Amino acid sequence: MKRWLVYGLFGVLALVALVGFGVPRALTAAGLHAHYEVPPMDLSGRRALIITTSHATLDPSGAATGVFASEMTAPYYAFLDAGMEVDIASIRGGAIPIEPASLRWPLISPPDRRFLDDPQFLSRVERSLEIELVDIEDYDIVFLAGGWGAAYDFAQSDALGDQISRAYAAGAVVGGVCHGPLGLLPARAPDGTPLVEGRRVTAVTDKQVQELNIEITPRHPERDLRAAGALFEAETAFRDFFATHVVVDGRIVTGQNQNSGAEAAHRMMEVVLTDNHETAP
């Protein structure tokens, strides 16, 4: 009898190990947070600003949401590891709400785990800068992190639109991933036209919104970017949650979803390092 108890215990432990390690690996193999190797880069003396939502609930349900963690952590460490000074801002400033599921098994990513052990980054997220008060011309890169919360306060923020417009006019590389590109909608090019009009961009797709059954948000990236005149493009998969795509159009760099953060950051840095990036469209 004791022997069967021992065998049973080992069986349970093996099942726990299989689920604990196997499920995240299977999701990664399918495309979720697939490893992207940012090559060594030296951007010492350059500065990046990551902007997130301040909206914490999926209205009207009241379910907790915010920024999807990896859309903030992956670009943060890509910039930091390249020698950049990185600041964190949000629409209202202060503590940034984070989508709870994005920091839990099986969705948590390696940059997220690094974040949870990084007191400096944790402090910056707890005390984020208010976007309206940021000296935006100080930054070479302005990155808009996504998550469902951004659907409630990015496109709706005149302050964000003004800051993105000023950053772009000053020569910065601007963009973001997933719902982040909604923050480009209120921005204007130096000639006064909508910044995204006639520009190639990507973001979370209508198909992904439908597949995740979160259509209650007031703004949808693909739909609204197309309506603003953007030339929207994306990849697809059996579920778009597992797809990824990055678009570089001059100094506007966008990524499709939570899988695109590291590559989008890499491509932004490449543009910064291009000698003539100040004159790119």
Rank of each mutant, 00 (worst) to 15 (best):
E126C: 05
T279C: 12
R239Y: 13
L49F: 09
W4C: 04
A26G: 12
Q256F: 10
I136T: 01
A265R: 01
G11R: 05
Y168M: 10
V86Y: 02
D112F: 04
A17F: 11
I216Q: 15
I214M: 13
G83N: 03
A172W: 01
G11E: 09
G147N: 01
T73C: 02
Q208E: 15
E132P: 12
V134M: 07
L182R: 00
V253Y: 01
D138T: 14
G176K: 02
I88E: 02
A69S: 10
D140S: 10
A14C: 12
A169F: 10
G192M: 07
G171P: 04
H35T: 15
A234L: 11
A82S: 07
V246S: 00
D135T: 12
A64K: 11
T73Q: 03
L80N: 14
V125L: 10
D206Y: 05
R46D: 10
D117Q: 15
H55N: 06
E222Y: 06
H277C: 12
A187C: 03
I88G: 02
I98E: 04
P186E: 06
F242S: 04
T279P: 09
T236A: 14
T236N: 13
R47L: 08
A34M: 14
Q256S: 09
P181I: 06
A243Y: 07
T193Y: 10
V248Y: 00
G149D: 01
E211S: 11
A262C: 02
E130S: 14
L195P: 01
V272W: 01
D153R: 08
P218C: 04
N257G: 11
Y152G: 07
G66H: 05
N257K: 07
L80K: 15
A82R: 00
G183T: 02
G8A: 10
P218D: 03
P119Q: 05
